[in-house]
């Protein structure tokens, strides 16, 4: 079920779009497009939703993300910290292309469960 599709504010440029769905104790977050320094305000909403939830697992579907920068990596790490406080597992699913390469160079496999 589509729960939320963010409306870009005047500074977002509409780059990041996401949907969240909560079911069976899991939150599934599907990100689209580019995840960059301009997406802090959007990501804040994702983190708020996670903090308010009792989910035991967070799954980020990244198959449709074409580009992520260092700020985007930082935002995923913030999600990881939030999940850790709530004792929830976090999974990054289906990174492709540039996203997969930057995860590898940033040693993300040591910090997250990454599923292809």
């Amino acid at each position: 079920m589509l729960v939320e599709l963010i409306e870009p504010n005047q500074y977002l440029g509409g780059a990041l779009q996401y949907e969240t769905a909560e079911r069976d104790g899991s939150i599934h977050v599907t990100l689209h497009g580019r995840v960059t320094y301009a997406d802090h305000p959007s990501f804040r909403n994702v983190i708020s939703q996670i903090r308010e939830s009792d989910a035991r697992e967070l799954v980020f579907d990244l198959a449709d993300v074409e580009f992520i920068d260092s700020a985007g990596l930082g935002m995923l790490l913030m999600v990881r910290d939030t999940a850790s406080q709530k004792k929830a597992n976090i999974v990054l699913r289906s990174p492709k292309g540039q996203v997969q390469r930057i995860f590898s160079s940033s040693k993300f496999e040591t910090l997250f469960t990454i599923q292809q």
């Binding site: 260092s70 790490l77 930057i102 910090l111």
Partner: peptide, 15 residues
């Protein structure tokens, strides 16, 4: 530290 949440931009550029 791979878990740092900021400060990796210049490191990335240099790499």
């Amino acid at each position: 530290d791979p878990a740092r949440t900021s400060g990796r931009g210049l490191v990335l550029i240099r790499s």
